[in-house]
Amino acid sequence: MAKPPKFASATAPRLDPFVVAAGDASPRDQRDLMERPFFSLSKTPRAKPILYRSGDVQVEVHALPEHGMATIWDADVLIWAASQIVDAENGGLHTSRRLRFTPYQLLTGIGRATGATEYRLFKAALRRLQSTVVATTIRQGEHWRRQQFSWIAEWEERGGVGGRVEGVEVVLADWFYRGVVDRSLVLTIDPLYFRLTGGIERWLYRVARKHAGHQPAGWMFELAHLHQKSGSLARPSDFALDIRRIVARQPLPGYHLTLDRAQGRERLRIAPLTAIITLGGPARPAVDAPVDGLVTSGARPIGISGARDTGHQAQARPAKPCPTRVGGALNLESNLESNLLAGGRRIEGRAP
């Protein structure tokens, strides 16, 4: 009897691979991942689980100590995969949660360099995405409570001369894939997102895109509520300090941030930059503005975050410039728990 091929699995015969022909697609993000704490926001390996609950929504994320939890930089792999799937389906092509592509396609698609270090970091990201276990009640049917999965069910690589990886095949989680093929659960994001270097500011951009969208009044959160939604290990005071530094830099593409206080509570208002400019407000600062050393919330400075030419840091400007309006939805249907504050208090979802 012939031996089964290496890396064969029970799912392989039932899944025709979706071969990515080109990596040039507008970046798209999955809505459920944009506002809940699914990823570590630090480059320091995290083993402590994320346990998040808001109403009927529960998210639990567990990691293996030897790999650490999947980070928000690892999530670039999922964003790129979602972009390719949506772009192919828009063109009438058949897709699958089994993707076949080259690392070069992915790395250039998310604005990273393509040296040996980047290939090594890319494979480390795949390991974390596969070893991280997620359990959530989001998008479950009437008679089902929660679903458990890893972001990548399996992956394999094809080696070339000198050990260089020539091709990669990954099988995405069915929960994630179903959330991508449902067009109502996907939002276009600014390509400049990949150039944001800090974990908190990356997460904050995704929250802004999901909630503020293009609403002229934007969206407002108390910092205590944002801290809860982020899943950050930082103390609330350190998290608030990080937010203040981000507000001072204004690095989020397409959005303007302001802080104020009401009844002794600090609040963050996120408004689309187009609305601010229309009203004669400040112009958007360059995303290349210097970033201070504290790019991970509450963590000591990490050398790799400032290193040159690494897969942790975006490099060249993406080929596609950001359109004037990224997506068209006002996001008026944003999740209700986003209006809830820590302790059960409620504020207005949209800024007055």
Rank of each mutant, 00 (worst) to 15 (best):
W155T: 00
E166G: 12
V161N: 11
V180L: 06
D190F: 05
R146F: 06
Q147R: 13
W175Y: 11
S184D: 15
G198Y: 05
E157A: 15
E157L: 13
G162A: 08
H143Q: 13
G163N: 02
E154D: 14
E157W: 06
P191S: 05
W203Q: 11
Y193L: 05
I200W: 04
G162C: 07
V168N: 00
Y177F: 15
G167K: 03
G159E: 12
R158M: 05
W203G: 00
E142M: 08
A153S: 15
R146P: 00
R145A: 04
L172N: 08
I152K: 12
G141A: 08
G163V: 02
L204W: 08
E166L: 14
R164C: 05
E156S: 15
R178P: 04
W175D: 10
G198T: 07
V168E: 01
V180Q: 02
V170M: 11
W151P: 10
I200Y: 05
G160F: 08
R206Q: 06
G167L: 07
V180D: 00
L196Y: 03
Q147G: 10
R195N: 09
F176G: 00
W151R: 04
G198V: 02
T197R: 15
V207L: 15
R195L: 15
Q147D: 14
R145I: 01
G141Y: 07
G162I: 03
Q140C: 14
G162N: 04
A153Y: 14
A173W: 07
H143N: 12
E169F: 00
E169Q: 01
A208H: 01
V207Q: 12
T188D: 14
V170S: 00
R183K: 12
W151Y: 13
W151K: 02
R202E: 04
R158T: 14
Y193H: 15
G198D: 04
G179R: 14
G199F: 04
Q140A: 08
G167C: 06
L192I: 04
V161F: 15
V171E: 15
R183N: 03
Y177H: 11
E154S: 14
E201F: 09
L192G: 10
I200Q: 11
L204F: 08
V161D: 11
W151T: 05
R206T: 09
R158Y: 03
E166M: 14
L172W: 06
L196D: 02
W155G: 01
E166R: 15
T197W: 09
L185T: 13
E142Y: 11
I189Q: 00
W151N: 11
A173N: 09
Q147E: 15
V168H: 01
G160A: 07
L204D: 08
V181H: 01
V171S: 00
E156V: 01
R145V: 04
V168Y: 07
F176S: 06
R164P: 05
D182Q: 12
A208G: 04
P191Q: 04
W144C: 03
R145W: 00
V171H: 05
G160K: 03
R146A: 13
T188N: 08
G167H: 02
